[in-house]
């Protein structure tokens, strides 16, 4: 099977302090005290290697702060790895925030067009998509009112509808699963599952293990920025809960 995303020994570090006066102060202090210096940067991901194949649905789980979102961001190009390479083929779409660029003083329609263009859709493409967006968000009569008059649920509905209007080749989902009121939650969840089913390849970060079990082919368990285990969903979730031992050779690329 073809590899569509190749994460090759990727490390991502974030600076902890700003260069400048601080670093000079540290050096000065170091001359007098021989204490070990605190690290200047935080390594969020360490030597992550992953091979994601065409048609695969990969889940990523782990505790808060283990680097799940950073990994998705590195894959989608938001952060350049400090070490290693991410290579991919196909158009990658990260579904993270769903109200990017939203501006209170613009109408719902204008915001939809703006968001659409941020997602890379041309004006003509948005003209075509607009009917579907309005229908799915059920905001027909509000589309020409300023966004500041929307409730937060309505805003989320609009954002979700725009963000999911197009079926991407590679879909990365960061926790955006259900928004709005109960009824819309159901439909948005349905739509995500539909997108997952139709997308060529999906990487999904989530805490809803039930859903992950249903849709994922493989799950990656991250711990402190390292891959603790990769494998079949049921097994990895057991490992996460500490009810099973991780398969030791975690970096093996065996297909589950």
């Amino acid at each position: 099977m073809t590899t569509v995303i190749d994460v090759d020994e990727v490390s991502v570090t974030f600076p902890l302090s700003r260069p400048g006066l601080n670093s000079i102060k540290r050096k000065m202090a170091n001359m007098f005290t021989n204490k070990e210096l605190k690290p200047l940067q935080r390594t969020v991901l360490t030597d992550i290697s992953l091979n994601i194949k065409q048609g695969e649905v990969l889940g990523i789980i782990g505790r808060n702060g283990c680097g799940k979102s950073t990994l998705l961001r590195a894959i989608s190009g938001i952060y350049r790895p400090s070490k290693g390479l991410v290579r991919s083929c196909g158009q990658i779409f990260l579904l993270a925030g769903i109200r990017i660029g939203f501006t209170g003083n613009l109408t719902g329609r204008e915001n939809a067009y703006l968001y659409g263009s941020i997602l890379g859709h041309s004006r003509e493409r948005m003209d075509e998509l607009m009917a579907g967006i309005i229908e799915f968000s059920e905001l027909e009569e509000y589309m020409d009112m300023p966004l500041r008059t929307y409730s937060s649920g309505m805003t989320a509905r609009l954002g979700f509808s725009v963000a999911t209007a197009v079926q991407p080749e590679i879909l990365l989902i960061d926790e955006v699963l259900a928004v709005g009121d109960q009824e819309f939650k159901e439909r948005s969840k349905e739509r995500i599952l539909e997108m997952v089913a139709n997308a060529g390849t999906v990487v999904i970060v989530s805490h809803s293990f039930g859903m992950l079990k249903n849709v994922c082919d493989r799950i990656v368990l991250l711990e402190n920025g390292c891959i603790k285990d990769v494998g079949k969903p049921e097994h990895i979730i057991e490992v996460y809960h500490g009810r099973a031992e991780p398969s030791l050779n975690s970096s093996s690329e065996e297909k589950g």
Partner: peptide, 19 residues
């Protein structure tokens, strides 16, 4: 680390190219 493309079939492009 080698930068050679091991997969001959995929035209993988580097994310975040550094010109």
């Amino acid at each position: 680390m080698t930068e050679m493309t091991t997969q001959s079939e995929g035209e993988l492009g580097v994310m975040y190219p550094s010109p």
